[in-house]
């Protein structure tokens, strides 16, 4: 940063404050669950925890891009099922794992492209369009799977989602690589700045010649590609292709992104927040299982946490502006 920014007194931006709050909650949750069950701190449990949220990490990062533009992508969960199906069927017909991977990612991008063209080019509501592709992709998945699951035994195809090095699932380093790559894309390329611009003010962005309509198309394609990657991880995890996989995943992703401080109205938020949001969410789910919390209560607790964080956010935002 130049002299302009360093010459001023250090201040806590709304987002950094949010990250501190999230970190605090993560610490509180960890300590609490650790006290309730000593197994919480075991290495094995961390492996289980991370593996269980690997897919959520990937999908939520794509959702962060989408929500930074003020949009929403409800189709990601169904897209995981669909692109997984395309990948698995390609794998079983060709026997080639790389072809299977490519097919899964391309299928995910195709659904994303449908979203992108309707939302970016035709300016239809993201909620409406992705609600349609949510049904469409699930339907396609059921059709291509013929409503039955397909077992996968190809070791290469299962490697990403299934294998662990010791307690560390290989998918976690992969998630880290994706995170670094997407961070560079978001913060250090013109495309990334266009994402913020399109979300902050579509009209201004258009007048300034930033082609926000084109940016939106690519954002949804990116979200679709991440759904495709998630599909590969999911297949590896359950060693089969499932037409009902990824069910409700979009809601978990939206929850994590909102927890992470990304504004629903676009233009504000960071990938780091989403990572913290997913972690907090994952820890809570894991801890609720470990402590044997009544499943009827779990949904209630999730809802209360989300509401609490959003409230806290509003208060801190108000405190900052007043």
């Amino acid at each position: 940063m130049t002299s302009i920014s360093t010459s001023t007194t250090p201040r806590l931006s709304g987002l950094s404050l949010r990250y501190l709050v999230l970190l605090g909650l993560i610490v509180i949750a960890s300590v609490g669950f650790g006290l309730a069950n000593e197994n919480f701190y075991s290495l094995t449990n961390f492996g289980i925890l991370l593996r269980s949220i690997a897919v959520l990490f990937l999908v939520s990062m794509g959702m962060t891009f989408v929500m930074l533009t003020g949009g929403i992508d409800l189709s990601v969960g169904s897209n995981v099922a669909f692109s997984g199906g395309v990948g698995v069927i390609t794998l079983t017909t060709t026997g080639s794992a790389p072809l299977g991977f490519a097919a899964a990612v391309l299928a995910g991008m195709a659904i994303g492209a449908i979203n992108g063209v309707f939302i970016g080019r035709l300016r239809l509501s993201a909620f409406m369009v992705s609600l349609a592709t949510y049904a469409l992709a699930r339907g396609l998945a059921l059709v291509i799977y013929d409503a039955n699951s397909i077992n996968v035994s190809n070791a290469a195809f299962l490697w990403l989602g299934g294998v662990s090095w010791g307690s560390m699932p290989v998918v976690i380093p992969f998630v880290v690589v994706v995170f670094v790559g997407l961070s560079v894309l978001l913060y250090n390329t013109p495309f990334g700045r266009n994402v913020y611009a399109a979300g902050a003010n579509f009209n201004t962005s258009f007048v300034l010649g930033r082609r926000p309509e084109r940016t939106l198309v690519w954002i949804y394609v990116l979200s679709g590609a991440l759904a495709g990657l998630s599909a590969i991880v999911t297949v590896g995890r359950v060693s089969s292709g499932q037409p009902w996989s990824g069910l409700y995943l979009e809601f978990d992703a939206i929850t994590a992104v909102i927890l992470g401080g990304t504004s629903l109205f676009g233009g504000r938020g960071r990938l780091l927040g989403t990572i913290l949001g997913v972690l907090l969410y994952g820890i809570i789910i894991n801890g609720l299982v470990l402590t044997g919390t009544n499943p009827y209560l779990q949904s209630l607790i999730k809802g209360m946490i989300l509401l609490g964080v959003v409230l806290l956010d509003t208060w801190t935002q108000r405190g900052k502006t007043s």
Binding site: V184, T189, P190, R193, A197, G199, S205, V207, L208, R210
Partner: peptide, 28 residues
């Protein structure tokens, strides 16, 4: 309405039309 990008920083607001010029090898 269509002059500023309200949630973004002063820096981001000014820099938008310059981005391509300040990009080397795909990175800003």
């Amino acid at each position: 309405k269509n002059g500023i990008l309200a949630p973004l920083s002063v820096r981001d607001n000014i820099a938008l039309p310059y981005l391509e010029k300040a990009t080397r090898g795909g990175l800003i």
